[in-house]
Design a protein around this nucleic acid. Structure first.
Length: 868
RNA sequence: GCGGAUGUGGCGGAAUUGGUAGACGCGCUGGAUUUAGGUUCCAGUGUCUUACGACGUGGAAGUUCGAGUCUUCUCAUCCGCACCA
C-alpha cells in the first residue's frame, strides 16, 4: 500500500479501484435506486437526462449531463422524495446504417453491442439510475407501442400524407439527410444533389401552434432563451393574404383565381414592384413544363439544397415569367411575375409581393434585376422630396407616402387600413400565419420504427389493424444496393390489404427518430405496460420535474415532445392536464478541449503529444501547434475517453471535475491540470477523514468560542450547497465544499477545543459531498464507523441562526470610493451606523475640508458619503 | 441570411434586488519536508506606482450617491435553422 509520511501522520491513498466497484455492488444489492411509487404525503421527483444515442462509447458530454442529473437525484432522495431516475437508449438512426454499410454488420447487432458497452460504462460511473426500467427505442416492445400511438394519431387526423421535398442523390438513388449534403453534393457519391418530391407522412403539429406558443409563458422553470427560441420557431405573425389577379392577357390554365401571397406588410402595397414565386410553387412547376429557361432555373435552384440556411444564404437569383398581375389598389398598374430562389415554398403561400424599399431581400433582388424601387414609408425626420433608398431598405417605423389612401398614416395604423380595404375589394383578408410547419416524419431508411400502414391499389393507404401489430422490422437486411433495404427486401413488404385482402405492399418508410424521443419519458413510468402509457403510473410521476440536456435540442426535440403530450392527451392515451411534459428544463454546455496539429496540419489526439516543459511536442520531437478550444469531436481528435479517466483516476474524479469549474449552462474545458486538481481533492478528503477517524469521538458537543466559526460555516455550507443543488449551480456548490474542507483542515491545528466541531463538520461534509462523489462518500462514512449507506442517509439540516453571520463588515465609501469598513454586529440602525461612520478615521481623512452633501445608508450593506 | 447566446486576473470562474469586483479551483512565485523526481505542507499572487494612491469586468456613450449588473450603440466568438442525434 502506498504510504506517504506528512507532518507526522500516515496518509493512505484512497483506493478508488476497489471501493468504487464495492459500493456500486452494495447499492445494487440494496436496490437503493429502484423507483418506488410515492407514498401519500411524500414528494416525488422525476429527474431525467436526455437519453443517449448508442454510438458505442460514452463521451465526456454524457458524463457531464448524467453527473448533473445524478447530483439532483441523489439529493432529492436524501431529502426524502420518491425519485424516478431512469435510463434508456435512443437507438434508431442513421449511424447504425452507416456502420452497416462500412463494416458489413447488421444495424441491430451493432446497436445492441454498443448499448451493452455503454451500459457498462454508465454503471462504472456510479449513477443512481433505476436500471429496472431500461429500454431501447429499437426494442420491439417499444416500437410496438409507438405503432399503436401512430394509429391513434392517424385516426384523429393528427397524421396525414402530402408531397414534400427531399435531397436526392442521383448516383446512389437515395434520399440524403441535410448533413449528408456537403456543398450541394452527396457526401459519398460527390454527385450534385437534386431536390425531389415524395409523398410523405406528416404530424399535424401546426394544429397546436397557438397552444404551444401560449403555454411557453407557463414554463417558468425553463431557460428564458429556450422559450424565446421556441417562440421564434413557432413564429406567429399577423398579416394579410392578398390575391393578385392576372392581367388582361389572361391567366394560365388552372390559375384563374390569380396568385395568392402572404404579407406582414400590406401597408407597403403601393411600393410593390413585382411578385415572386417559389421555385416549387405550383404555377412555377406548370410554367416549367412549357418553358425550358424556367425549367432550367428550377433545376438549378434544386441544387442549392433543402435546408433553410442554404436557401437563404444562396445568392439571390430569379427569372421573369413574362406574366403580369394587376395591382390590387392601383387601377391599370401591372406587376411582373418573377420566380425567385429566396421565396420559401414552406412558408405562407410560397409566393410574395415585393416592396424593395421596405425589405432588404426584395431590394437586393430589385437592384440586381433592375426593377423599380419606390419608397412608401418615410422615416422620421426625413423630407419626402429628398429621401432616397440606396443600398439599405427601410424596415422601421415612419409615415406612409406615395400610397394613396394610406398617405400620412404611421405604419401601425396603415396595416389594418390596408387589410380592411383589401377585404372591401374582396382581394384579400387578414391572416394569422405561423412559421411552424407540419412535421415531416417519413424517412426512407431501414433502421427506424416501421410505419404501420399498407398501400393497396384499390383501398389506398390502409392502417394495419391493431391486432396485427407490431409490424416487425426484418432482422437480416442487405445494404448491397443503394436505397432503402426495406424496399428491396425480397418478402417483407408484400402482404395483403386488410380491407379487400388483395395483394398489397407495406409502407417502407420508417419514422423519424424524433418520434421515438417524443414520448420515451412517459414510457419510463410504466416501461412494461401493454399500452404506451399506464395512467396510474403516469399520474404518479409525470410531468418530469427536471429535464437536462444539450442546448442543441432547444427547439426541435423539446417542441416535438410538447406536441406529443398534447396529441396523446387528445387521443386519450395520456392524462396530463397541462399538456406539458417537462416542468423544469435545463440546457447544459458542452465539454471542450484544446486542439492540436502537427506540422502537416493533421489533427493530433491529446495522447499523442508530450510536454517538454514549455511546449508540446510529438513523440518524434516535432513541434505541435495548439489550436482553438473546441467541442470534443472525433474529427478534431480532441476527445478524452471517460473510460481512460475512470481507469486512471476513478469515477468520482471524473464526476467532480465535470461539475466543478464551469457553470453548468456554459461549456467546460477539459484540462489535464483540472483533473489532477480533482484527483487531489478526493485524496485530501480521504486523508482528512482518516485523520478524524483516528481521533476519539468527542462527547462534549457544546459550542465554544474557538469552535463557533467552524460550526457556523458548517451550517452555512449546508444551506448554500442545498440551494446550489436546487438551482443546479454545481460549480458554486463545489466551491463551498472546498471552503468547508479547507476550514476542517485548518481546525486540525486548533486541537482539543475543536474536536467536536471538526467531527461534526466532517460528517456533514461527507453527506454534502455524497451526490457529487458518491463512492468516496461511502468509503468515508464507513471509515467513521457508520453502519448504513450514505445513499440511505437523510440530508443534513441546518439551523437558521447558525447559518447566518452574527458580525458583518460594512464598507464605507466616500463619493463612491471605498475608504474603510465597519466590523459590526448585524442589525444596527441607520443612526448608529452613521455615527460610527463619521467617527471612522479614514472617512474623516477623506472628507476633511469638504462639505457633506448627502449620506446613503443601506443597513447591513453599505454606507456612502457624498462630499464636495 | 434569420434566430439565440456569451465576453470579468495568466486560465476556468464567483459576486441575492444596482451596494467591498476577483470567492473557490488551476497555474505561477517563494519557503519547508522528503528528495532522484513527483507527492505533501506553509505563504504570496488583478494592473500600474518608491509611496500616498490611481486604474480595472470586450469597446464607446448614458442613467445613478454608487454599474460586472440597467439603457443605447459597437466589436468578437459560439450554437440552432426543420432528414445528425
Amino acid at each position: 500500500m502506498p504510504v506517504n509520511k506528512t507532518k507526522g501522520f500516515v496518509m493512505t491513498r484512497y483506493p478508488y479501484e476497489t471501493s468504487e466497484a464495492k459500493w456500486q455492488k452494495a447499492w445494487e444489492k440494496q436496490a437503493c435506486f429502484v423507483a418506488k411509487d410515492p407514498k401519500p404525503g411524500q414528494g416525488k421527483s422525476y429527474i431525467l437526462e436526455m437519453f443517449p444515442y448508442p454510438s458505442g462509447r460514452l463521451h465526456m458530454g454524457h458524463v457531464r449531463n448524467y453527473a448533473m442529473g445524478d447530483v439532483l437525484a441523489r439529493y432529492r432522495r436524501a431529502k426524502g422524495d420518491a425519485v424516478l431516475h431512469p435510463m434508456g437508449w435512443d437507438a434508431f438512426g442513421l449511424p447504425a446504417e452507416n456502420a452497416a454499410i462500412q463494416k458489413g454488420v447488421q444495424p441491430k447487432d451493432w446497436t445492441y453491442k454498443n448499448i451493452a458497452s455503454m451500459r457498462k460504462q454508465l454503471k462504472a460511473l456510479g449513477f443512481s439510475l433505476d436500471w429496472s426500467r431500461e429500454f431501447a427505442t429499437c426494442d420491439q416492445d417499444y416500437y410496438h407501442q409507438q405503432q399503436k400511438i401512430f394509429l391513434k394519431l392517424l385516426e384523429k387526423d393528427l397524421i396525414y400524407r402530402k408531397s414534400s421535398q427531399v435531397n436526392w442523390d442521383p448516383v446512389e438513388n437515395t434520399v440524403l439527410a441535410n448533413e449528408q449534403v456537403v456543398d450541394g453534393r452527396g457526401w459519398r457519391s460527390g454527385a450534385l444533389v437534386e431536390t425531389r418530391n415524395l409523398e410523405q407522412w406528416f404530424f399535424r403539429i401546426t394544429a397546436y401552434a397557438q397552444d404551444l406558443l401560449d403555454a411557453l409563458d407557463g414554463l417558468s422553470r425553463w431557460p428564458e432563451k429556450v422559450r424565446t427560441m421556441q417562440a421564434n420557431w413557432i413564429g406567429r405573425s399577423k398579416g394579410a393574404l392578398v390575391r393578385f389577379a392576372f392581367a388582361d392577357e389572361g391567366a394560365p390554365d388552372g390559375f384563374d383565381e390569380g396568385v395568392e401571397v402572404f404579407t406582414t406588410r400590406p401597408d407597403t402595397l403601393f411600393g410593390a414592384s413585382f411578385i415572386a414565386l417559389s421555385p416549387q410553387h405550383p404555377l412555377t412547376l406548370k410554367l416549367a413544363k412549357s418553358k425550358t429557361e424556367i425549367d432550367d432555373f428550377v433545376k438549378k435552384c434544386a441544387q442549392a439544397g433543402t435546408s433553410e440556411e442554404a436557401i437563404e444564404r444562396a445568392e439571390k437569383t430569379g427569372i421573369d415569367t413574362g406574366l403580369s398581375v394587376e395591382h390590387p389598389f392601383i387601377e391599370g398598374k401591372r406587376l411582373p411575375v418573377w420566380i425567385a430562389n429566396f421565396v420559401l415554398m414552406g412558408y405562407g403561400t410560397g409566393a410574395i409581393f415585393a416592396c424593395p424599399a421596405g425589405d432588404q431581400r426584395d431590394l437586393d433582388f430589385a437592384r440586381k434585376y433592375d426593377l423599380p424601387v419606390l419608397p412608401v414609408v418615410l422615416p422620421p425626420g426625413e423630407a419626402a422630396e429628398e429621401y432616397r433608398i440606396y443600398d439599405s431598405a427601410w424596415v422601421g417605423d415612419g409615415r406612409l407616402y406615395n400610397s394613396g389612401f394610406l398617405n400620412g398614416k404611421p405604419v401601425k395604423e396603415a396595416i389594418p387600413l390596408a387589410i380592411s380595404e383589401l377585404e372591401k375589394l374582396q382581394k384579400g383578408k387578414q391572416k394569422i400565419q405561423f412559421r411552424l410547419r407540419d412535421w415531416g416524419a417519413s424517412r426512407q431508411r431501414y433502421w427506424g420504427c416501421p410505419i404501420p400502414v399498407i398501400h393497396c391499389d384499390s383501398c389506398g393507404a390502409v392502417p394495419v389493424p391493431e391486432a396485427e401489430l407490431p409490424v416487425v422490422l426484418p432482422d437480416a437486411v442487405s445494404f448491397e444496393q443503394p436505397g432503402n433495404p426495406l424496399d428491396h427486401h425480397p418478402t417483407w413488404k408484400h402482404t395483403k390489404c386488410p380491407i379487400c385482402a388483395k395483394p398489397a405492399v407495406r409502407e417502407t418508410d420508417t419514422l423519424d427518430t424524433f418520434v421515438d424521443s417524443s414520448w420515451y419519458f412517459a414510457r419510463f413510468c410504466s416501461p412494461k405496460a401493454d399500452a404506451p402509457v399506464e395512467s396510474a403510473a403516469a399520474r404518479s410521476w409525470l410531468p418530469v420535474d427536471q429535464y437536462i440536456g444539450g442546448i442543441e435540442h432547444a427547439v426541435l426535440h423539446l417542441l416535438y415532445a410538447r406536441f406529443f403530450t398534447r396529441a396523446l392527451r387528445d387521443c386519450g392515451l395520456l392524462d396530463l392536464p397541462g399538456g406539458e411534459p417537462f416542468n423544469g428544463m435545463f440546457t447544459q454546455g458542452m465539454v471542450t478541449h484544446e486542439t492540436y496539429r502537427d506540422n502537416e496540419g493533421n489533427w493530433l489526439s491529446p495522447e499523442e503529444i508530450v510536454s517538454d516543459g514549455a511546449n508540446w511536442k510529438t513523440k518524434n520531437g516535432d513541434r505541435v501547434h495548439v489550436g482553438a478550444i473546441e467541442k470534443m469531436s472525433k474529427s478534431k481528435r480532441n476527445t478524452v475517453d471517460p473510460a481512460v479517466i475512470i481507469e486512471k483516476y476513478g469515477a468520482d474524479v471524473a464526476r467532480w471535475f465535470v461539475l466543478s469549474d464551469s457553470p453548468p449552462a456554459r461549456d467546460v474545458q477539459w484540462t489535464e491540470a483540472g483533473v489532477e486538481g480533482a484527483a487531489r481533492f478526493v485524496q485530501r478528503v480521504w486523508a482528512e477523514v482518516c485523520d478524524v477517524a483516528e481521533q476519539p469521538v468527542p462527547q462534549n458537543q457544546s459550542i465554544t468560542k474557538g469552535s463557533e466559526p467552524l460550526i457556523r460555516l458548517t451550517h452555512k455550507t449546508v444551506r448554500a450547497v442545498s440551494q446550489d443543488i436546487e438551482t443546479l449551480g454545481f460549480n458554486k456548490a463545489v466551491a463551498r465544499l472546498y471552503e468547508l474542507m479547507n476550514a476542517i483542515r485548518k481546525a486540525k491545528e486548533a486541537g482539543g477545543e475543536m474536536l467536536a466541531a471538526r467531527h461534526q463538520a466532517t460528517r456533514t461534509l461527507i453527506l454534502l459531498l455524497s451526490p457529487f462523489v458518491p463512492h468516496l462518500a461511502e468509503s468515508c462514512w464507513e471509515k467513521l464507523g457508520e453502519q448504513d449507506l450514505v445513499a440511505q442517509t437523510p440530508w443534513p439540516v441546518f439551523e437558521v441562526e447558525l447559518a447566518e453571520d452574527d458580525t458583518i463588515v460594512i464598507p464605507l465609501q466616500v463619493n463612491g470610493k471605498r475608504r474603510g469598513q465597519l466590523d459590526v454586529i448585524a442589525g444596527l440602525s441607520k443612526d448608529e451606523l452613521l455615527d460610527m461612520a463619521m467617527k471612522n478615521p479614514s472617512v474623516q481623512k477623506s472628507i476633511a475640508g469638504l462639505e457633506v452633501k448627502k449620506v446613503i445608508i443601506v443597513p447591513d450593506r453599505i454606507i456612502n458619503i457624498v462630499a464636495a
